[in-house]
Amino acid sequence: MRSVRGLSRRSARRRTGRVLVEGPQGVREAVRFAPERIVDLYVTAEAEQRYAEFVEPAREAGVFVHEVTDEVLAAMCDADTPQGTAAVVEWAPSDLPGVLAADPRLLVLLTHVRDPGNLGTVIRGADAAGADAVLVSDASVDVTSPKVVRSTAGSLFHLPVVSGLSIPETLTALGAAGVRRLAADGAGESTTEDADLTGPHVWVMGNEAWGLEEATLAACDEVVRVPIHGHAESLNLAMATTICLYASARQQRA
C-alpha cells in the first residue's frame, strides 16, 4: 500500500518508472491499450461488479487484480474519491525523433504549462481532435503526476506524449522536419478561422499567466489568434488549445 501511495511523489515515479492511474476511465483505457504495462490493478468488491467490462479482460490478460476495501484504496490514492479502482502502470515515455519519424500532421507544443489540470485536459482534447502527439517543455508540470493522469481520462494511453523538451531545440527540429510552427497568441494578424491549417503544423501554446515569450514567438513561422466575438478578455489555456486543434482538424479532414 505504501509503495502505491508513494507514486504521488515525483521521486518515486522516477525511481520506479511507474505511474498511478486512478478511476474507471483511466484504468479502462490502460487495460484496453496497454495491458502489458499494468503491474497491479486494485478494485473494491462493488467496483469489481460495476466495472466487469475491464476487470475481467484484465484478468484474462494476466494482470494481477487485487480486491481491496474502500479505506485501503483511499489510502493508496491521491484523489479524494478514486471511484473504486486504481492501477499501477509502467510508464513508457515517447521521444521527439520517434514522433517526427511518423510524419505527423498535427501537433501541439506546450511551453511552461504549470497547471496539471490544464495539461491533462490538453492531452484529452488533442486525443479527441486526432492530433498525432503532445509535446511538453522542460519547464512544465510533470506529465506523470496523478492529477495530470486523472485529467487525461485515459487519453494518455492513446497518443504519444513527449516531455522534458527544450523549446528552442524542439522548434528547430520541427522546422527542419517541415512542420509549420504556429504560435497561438492574441497579437496574431490571422485567426483560426482564416489561417491555412491544411499542411503539417504544430500549435505552440504559452504559459497560463504570461503567454509566449518573445524568443518563442520570433522562432515561429506565423502568429495566429483565437477570435473572441464576445466580451471575454481571454480563454483558458486548455480551451484555447482545443479550439486551435479542432480548427486544424476541420481543415485537414475537409
Score class of each variant (00 low, 15 high):
R13T: 10
V19Y: 11
E22G: 01
P24K: 02
Q25D: 14
V27P: 01
R28Y: 05
R28F: 11
E29N: 04
V31A: 05
R32P: 06
P35R: 02
R37H: 06
D40K: 00
D40T: 11
V43D: 04
V43H: 07
T44S: 07
A47Q: 09
Y51E: 14
Y51C: 07
Y51W: 12
A52H: 06
E53P: 08
V55D: 05
E56S: 15
E56H: 15
E56R: 15
P57I: 02
P57S: 08
A58R: 04
R59E: 14
G62E: 01
H66I: 09
V68S: 07
V68G: 10
T69F: 01
D70G: 08
A74N: 07
M76V: 09
M76A: 05
C77M: 04
C77A: 13
C77R: 08
D78G: 14
D80Y: 12
A86M: 06
V88Q: 03
V88L: 10
P93G: 03
S94R: 07
D95A: 09
L96S: 11
L96Q: 07
G98H: 06
G98P: 08
V99D: 04
A101I: 15
A101N: 12
D103T: 14
R105S: 09
L107Q: 04
V108E: 03
V108N: 02
L110Y: 03
L110F: 01
G117P: 01
V122W: 01
I123D: 01
A128R: 03
A129H: 08
V134R: 07
L135T: 05
L135N: 10
V136T: 11
V136F: 03
S137Q: 13
D138P: 06
A139N: 08
S140R: 11
D142C: 13
V148P: 00
V149A: 09
S151Y: 00
T152N: 02
A153E: 07
G154W: 08
L156E: 01
L159W: 05
V161T: 02
V161K: 00
G164W: 04
G164A: 13
L165A: 07
S166I: 10
T172M: 10
T172E: 03
T172S: 15
A173Q: 08
G175P: 08
G175C: 13
G178L: 10
V179W: 02
G186H: 10
G186R: 12
G186K: 07
E189P: 06
E189H: 12
A195W: 00
D196S: 06
D196A: 10
D196G: 06
T198C: 11
W203C: 00
V204N: 01
M205Y: 06
M205W: 13
G206C: 07
G206S: 03
A209R: 15
A219C: 05
C220F: 00
V224C: 04
V226Q: 00
H231Y: 11
A232R: 12
A232Y: 08
E233W: 04
N236F: 06
A240F: 01
C244I: 12
C244P: 03
L245T: 06
L245D: 00
Y246I: 09
R253S: 13
R253E: 10
